[in-house]
Amino acid sequence: MELKELYREIVNEHNLHPDHRGMLPRASCTRDGVNPSCGDDIKLSLVFDDNGILTDGAFDGSGCAISQAATDMMLELVIGKSREEALELADAFMDMIRGNATEEQLEMLEESAALEGIAHMPARVKCATLAWRTLKEMLTEAE
């Protein structure tokens, strides 16, 4: 997909009209993710239940359209999943951005798989992965 098409089809909608923007007052954990060189800056807050299911999540912050849209899409995907499932998705996303995801992994990523083309844009990789890196840190730290 060409870049402008990617923006038009997916990124713009999630950037300009995100479903998961905000802060959760009763979050189990929150964490800042920053790309110092671009100024992308997000704050993720997650709610886990007693069974380790991620029951809710939200993000706040500012940055480029790709960083913000990738965060919104990620939350759409991981809410309702277990810790383990969310980790598996994070690994799938990272594999995709490195250009070596399997068909199965791409399917698992649902809408987030639209960012596959970022693998060919080294300058934007950090934007696309910021949310997933931050999520992974939160998931592994909480274990």
Binding site: E2, L3, K4, Y7, C38, G63, C64, A65, I66, M121, A123, R124, C127
Partner: peptide, 13 residues
């Protein structure tokens, strides 16, 4: 409303 990195990326295209 536009982050400069998005601006540069679409202009690159």
């Amino acid at each position: 409303g536009c982050h400069p990195h998005d601006v540069a990326s679409v202009l690159d295209e």
